[in-house]
Amino acid sequence: MMPSPAESWMRATVAVVLSGCAQASSKPEDVREMTLRIAAASGFRDVCRLRLLPGFADHWKARHGVRPKFEESYASSGSLTRSIDSGFDADVALLMSVGDLDRLAKSNILRQAGSRSSISGIIARGRVVIGVRPGNPKQIRSWDDLARDDVGVILADPRVSGGSRWNIFAIWGAAQLRDDGSTASARDLLAGITRRVVTFESSSRLSLAAFARGAGDTVVTAESELHSLRTRTGVAYETVVPARTLRMDLPGCLIEVSVEKHGNRAVAEEFFAYLNEPEAQAAFQEFGFAAMEVEAEAPTRFDTPTAKSSLFTIEELGGWPRLNDEIFGETGVWDGLFIASNGRGTAR
């Protein structure tokens, strides 16, 4: 933990506490009293607390002379989405999956009354990688290695954690692209890997925690999560970037109904814009995400610059909704993977 940003975050919290009920929504926006409510997926927690919020506070102060106040909520992307959908009045949401953004968009809380557009979009990118123990003792190089009998895999349960569906899509897509779009081979690879799963944890964070406790040999996760684990534990877990992997497009949005209610449009819009500034994008990169301008086939911005990785996008696989339906929908392949592989021995 770096002391200065942590302190500034704490000051922000104190300010929120002191301001108490000062959040009376005065009609003409008074920038000096602005409080921003941020709901972010747990994966953004570190970068938000340590870089984005302090950075934006400075940025805002330089223009308006006062620091804005923040109220932060971190939870899994899925449960944040559900809370917001059922009335939680966050101003800005930073999510892990396009699916979650779609869900919010459907319920008309992202649009101003009478407007057809919303302020939302991809705020950062990442990629799905394999985490291994220091020294890569099991010599993991590729997705196929995860299906080996001597390898134990940790996954976040994609049924529970929407954000971790990226991981499954990455495996699925890599096999499909390698074998000219063959669904059968994708299914085989996925079945082979799920057979080696030691535990399906209920969130990305918990899957990393289980991995750190010694469970399994590998964890499939976002590069930023692995970065965060290294920072937290001080253990040199290694990142293996498979030859083909998926670029994660991480969305954010303004919740118009909340902004209307709070009367803090100025700060909310400016925060959303700030996320695209070079300063914010550099912060994302620092924490293992990729900056927005990083395109497929350009892995140099990631923190393992030597790994050659061919990145594909969710669009190349047909888009989130279609893929989601294909794998996790009513007739999706996911549950069938287990039924087919029932009777397996112990997964380790």
Partner: peptide
């Protein structure tokens, strides 16, 4: 059991 089960369908779920 959420932490110890492993939550594997058709096995420990």
């Amino acid at each position: 059991i959420s932490l110890v089960a492993g939550n594997r369908p058709l096995d420990t779920q």
